[in-house]
Write a protein that binds this DNA or RNA. Structure first.
Lengths: 350, 350
DNA sequence: ATGAAAGCGCTAACAT
DNA sequence: ATGTTAGCGCTTTCAT
């Protein structure tokens, strides 16, 4: 039987509304009364029931966090950062996993809507129009997707993909494959768009393979196809796929980076632990989690601030990329920074 | 403005209690009325407000999940499984991260208590007595810890540690180090107890190093110390530490497994991706997550079922362990199963 | 500065 | 089978 506001009121000999004020508007209550009430509350282990409070105030102090796959190493740092930031702001996090399923996403947003002040929708696979509709039912901040008029936190993967392709062409690769991510992924489209443009600018052939499931298996599954295309370099949708691809290539006696260079995206912890260490585009997942929480909570203050935060990405050159068949450009940053040193080529946003 | 029960009542021309019954006790309402109410609800996008419902029923349909570190690769599969299982049972999950801090644990349990039907406390660092006290304030299921009288899901790491030590002694190692985990960890104590016993039984020297932070850095930090002890084999508290240790050893030109064999615990995804592939004790994290949710929810049906689930572990022999200086025993399973095949030596519980 | 009263959205006896 | 009433724990006018 947890203590209620009534227990505290009785114990401290005041009306329940005074107890209420002690917690939600302390300045309105006499200092002496306040400390007495506080003492009784402490003694009884009283904590205001947030759900009851929410019923009348409309603020739950909860946030929904919907991700495609908790077990995908990209997400845990984001989740951790979001939870930490939320708790610092006195909020709690509902976590939910959609298994990359757009239908589940919709259902989850609706299911959580009443219990939260807003939902962080990470890498959604739903249509824009559905997301817009949902955002009318509950405050939404979208992560890894840009939708006109909606607050969003995105990572500049376009920039990252461009750097990656430039790195590869700079190394002399003239035939590159892009292993795409899942259907419905904004990030995958961005990467594709940018990689195609960068390849064209460099006069390089770019073959798109996909869509594919964004997993290690997904990467492994395209190894055969990558080999058949005859490319000497690959940019993968994410590190997990890059790692799977490398496994697939190696098991077919294709060496990385000697025969084929591979670049991933995300810079998950794994990437510097496998051999060869993975060259990859680092995406600031933790920063995204924090930013998303901040945006959602700021939303309360100034109405209709549909700011969009664009977080910078960096190319981290390690050991999975090497010389291609063509002439290599000495201007390429990849040649300047020693791979063994976990070189980071960072570019400010224009 | 989300629709309330009153809107639906008005729209369908019945009293709100009929609407209520339509959702919480459908069999008590006339089939025709029911479908009419349902239709109106559907049309208005009505969903019962769970917080309001909880206020009177006492059931929130929420579960708290408290873990030491979301970003530790051991936890995401557990979290994912728990969330999936919970949702299947129509519950939502609050996630919280304690950063391995016992004080935060206590605070979090209390903060969540009112909004959940129970809390899953994973690998807690608190004292037993504090946990017992908290379990009087909110239903608790403890994971990775055994406390008399409390429902718990544990993994049989004692068995795993024994298998690991036997594997090492079987390979001819006569001086083994145990790299312990964090202070306050039940798992770490279990491993230690069991490893010490197994070593003694085999007439082998076992040096305990620690406690240590259960991270890659924690493992890396003890490399020097491991070398100084002169051991030829190490059992680490978890894979992350084992991996850090291997890095630390390699950077000091100590080869694994040629000079030193290393065994981890957990079998995180990483373990089969690094080189050498890590020999490790596989712990069923996903099964633990599911079981914990099931126990918590079952708790409602039959009162005071303080069952304790003990999940089996397996030794997965890969490439980070090899021949020691002493005579090796041909009876050792490690010699039977080809390391390259990801051999699994599984033993039924006694 | 404090108390009284109404009500947030819902369920659960109790009537009918 | 449905309506009536009370009230879960809390906040918020409105009085005093």
């Amino acid at each position: 039987m947890p203590a209620t506001i009534r227990d505290v009121a009785r114990e401290s000999g005041v009306h329940i509304s005074t107890v209420s004020r002690t917690f939600s508007a302390p300045h309105l209550v006499n200092a002496e009364t306040r400390s007495r009430v506080l003492a009784c509350a402490e003694m009884l282990g009283y904590r205001p029931n947030r759900a009851a409070r929410a019923l009348i105030t409309g603020r739950t102090y909860n946030i929904g966090l919907i991700v495609a796959d908790i077990a995908n190493p990209f997400f845990p740092p984001l989740i951790k950062a979001a939870e930490s930031q939320a708790r610092q702001r006195d909020h709690h996090i509902f976590i939910a996993d959609t298994n990359e399923d757009a239908t589940v996403e919709e259902e989850l947003v609706r299911a959580l809507a009443k219990q939260v002040d807003g939902v962080l929708l990470c890498s959604p696979r739903m249509s824009n129009s559905l997301i817009e509709q949902l955002s009318r039912e509950v405050p939404l901040v979208v992560v890894n997707r840009q939708i006109p008029g909606l607050p969003a936190v995105v990572m500049d993967v376009a920039q990252g993909a461009r750097l990656a392709v430039e790195h590869l062409t700079g190394l002399g690769h003239t035939e590159i494959a892009l292993v795409a991510g899942p259907r419905g992924s904004w990030t995958s489209r961005e990467i594709r768009r940018s990689a195609v443009a960068a390849a064209r600018a460099a006069g390089t052939e770019l073959t798109v393979i996909g869509p594919n499931p964004p997993t290690e298996d997904g990467g492994m599954a395209v190894a055969e196809q990558v080999i058949r295309t005859g490319v000497t370099a690959v940019l993968a949708y994410n590190d997990l796929m890059a790692i799977g691809l490398i496994e697939g290539l190696q098991s077919r006696d294709v060496r990385v980076p000697r025969d084929v260079s591979v670049v991933g995206i995300d810079d998950i912890t794994l990437s510097r632990l496998i051999r060869p260490k993975l060259t990859t585009v680092a995406t600031p997942a933790a920063a995204a989690g924090r930013a998303a929480v901040d945006m959602l909570l700021a939303h309360g203050d100034d109405r209709r601030t549909t700011a969009q935060v664009n977080l910078q990405t960096e190319l981290v050159i390690r050991d999975s990329t090497g010389q291609g068949p063509g002439p290599h450009s000495p201007a390429d940053p990849g040649n300047v920074i020693a791979p063994a040193l976990d070189g980071v080529a960072s570019y400010a946003k224009e």
